[in-house]
């Protein structure tokens, strides 16, 4: 069973490298943030798998809880920060850009 968990862990690491493609080459900052969120969710699972491999799961599960909480807080915080960046992308769309399109009825 340990061999199976080692394969599962290696597979998860491989998928994290695939998601790293989006983090490095993402066209906008929000794309990178999404890649980081996906990697963080995989890391939570990977921590428990590592704990089962080493037979110390009662220690690693606490780290996994803390990592899940931190991942959520970091994602929400970074998303709130980028929410007020107007020039994230050169083309405007959305509620904030309504007036730029010549919609001056108000």
């Amino acid at each position: 069973m340990t061999t199976y968990f080692i394969y599962a862990g290696v597979g998860l690491c491989f998928l994290m490298f695939l998601a790293l493609y989006r983090v490095i080459l993402g066209p906008t900052a929000i794309d990178r943030l999404m890649g980081v969120n996906v990697i963080g969710t995989k890391t939570t699972v990977l921590l428990i798998v590592i704990g089962l491999i080493y037979g110390r799961v009662e220690m690693f599960v606490d780290i996994a809880i803390a990592y899940a909480l931190l991942n959520f807080i970091a994602t929400v915080g970074a998303a709130r920060y980028f929410q007020h960046r107007k020039n994230l992308c050169s083309v405007g769309f959305g509620l904030r850009h309504k007036e730029d399109k010549g919609d001056t009825t108000e």
Binding site: V76, G92, F93
Partner: peptide, 14 residues
């Protein structure tokens, strides 16, 4: 978290 990210993208004009 999904909603926070997509709202940030929508507000910042993606």
């Amino acid at each position: 978290a999904t909603h926070a990210i997509i709202d940030a993208g929508f507000e910042s004009g993606v």
